[in-house]
């Protein structure tokens, strides 16, 4: 493949927009939206490593997000240390927790695995919300804001570039995965584990590696999110809704593709932001409306476009190529 595929062009265009936007627009609302799109995109990309590439669909990835968020919140608020130490701690803890989940993925398949990941994140939620002495329990922890790069007390513009940097690294990891030996072997494991084993692929080890990598990437996202938002609420950071969000962005964008999670995030996060702005006056709030759309979209995408937006684009491209010929 020497030609530069259209998806890479699309990614490059998005990168250009995200890089230039903060130079032109200083509106906090727009920048906040951009940061969230990038963060949710990166987090969905992290989920994609396990769910999309290795086929291990977790509905408990909030566990790793929460680990990352709590690591930095506790490290900064309780121990007055650098959030970067919190990031490191979160990654280490998530690698351990990811190993546990990876082990589960070797014993359980399909819905059994999904159920076990939900249970895992629920256990962490209960620990975080009930262990008052250490985590401040259900009240949550405010993350102190100290201006500066090493304390991650950044301006909106700076946050755009931090989030963009992470998004770019995650995209790069997956673009590499798509054309590497490891990526092809993971695809084999995802498609049929027994067949992959017969062809000499150590499927169990590979799955654990993928889930662990995915967990560490999610944890980094959790740390950055906590630093950006400035507050860690156990019922949010460990919620099933959050786990599902990572999965949904990816499915809507296209599982097992580098661009998919970001496309999904652009669509879903913008929709959320738009509806939040539109319905903010109403008593019931925006949340319901956008989630109804979200849930319905998920059902429709799974049914009619199981390969997501990237798959749709491919089909459209193929159709146009045939029409041209």
């Amino acid at each position: 493949m020497t030609s530069f595929p259209p998806r890479r062009w699309a990614a490059l265009a998005l990168l250009g927009v995200a890089t230039l936007l903060p130079l032109v627009v200083r509106d906090a609302f727009v920048l906040d939206s951009l940061i969230l799109i990038l963060m949710w995109g990166a987090l969905s990309a992290a989920w994609n490593v396990a769910g999309g590439y290795a086929g291990q669909v977790s509905l408990g990835h909030a566990a790793f997000f929460g680990i990352g968020a709590y690591s930095t919140a506790l490290m900064t608020a309780r121990f007055q240390q650098s959030p970067w130490l919190g990031l490191l701690l979160g990654v280490v803890l998530s690698i351990v927790a990811g190993g546990v989940i990876g082990y589960l993925s070797n014993r359980l398949r399909g819905p059994y695995f999904a159920l076990s990941t939900i249970a895992f994140s629920q256990v962490l939620l209960i620990l975080a919300s009930r262990w008052r002495g250490f985590t401040a329990g259900s009240e949550g922890i405010p993350v102190p804001f100290r201006r500066g790069f090493w304390t991650l007390g950044l301006s909106h513009v700076a946050w755009v570039y931090v989030a963009l940097g992470v998004a770019l690294i995650y995209y790069g990891v997956e673009a590499w995965l798509e054309s590497s030996r490891l990526g092809y072997q993971l695809a084999g494991v995802r498609e049929d584990e027994d067949a992959a084993e017969a062809l000499g692929i150590a499927s169990r080890r590979l799955k654990i590696h993928a889930v662990t990598l995915s967990a560490a990437m999610t944890s980094v996202g959790g740390t950055l999110w906590a630093q950006y938002v400035g507050f860690v609420d156990p019922f949010y950071v460990f919620s099933i809704d959050l786990s599902i969000r990572f999965a949904l962005n990816t499915i809507i964008g296209g599982m097992g593709t580098a661009l998919g999670p970001f496309l999904g995030s652009i669509l879903i996060t913008s929709l959320e932001t738009y509806l939040r702005a539109t319905f903010s006056g109403l008593k019931t709030g925006f949340a319901g409306t956008y989630l109804v759309i979200y849930g319905t979209a998920l059902i429709l995408v799974v049914r009619f476009a199981p390969e997501g937006l990237t798959g749709l684009a491919d089909r459209l491209g193929a159709w146009r190529a045939r029409a041209d010929a």
Binding site: A198, L199, G200
Partner: peptide
């Protein structure tokens, strides 16, 4: 190396 009676291609 073995093959499977019920073939197991990587379908996608």
């Amino acid at each position: 190396t073995r093959t499977f009676q019920l073939v197991k291609p990587f379908g996608n």
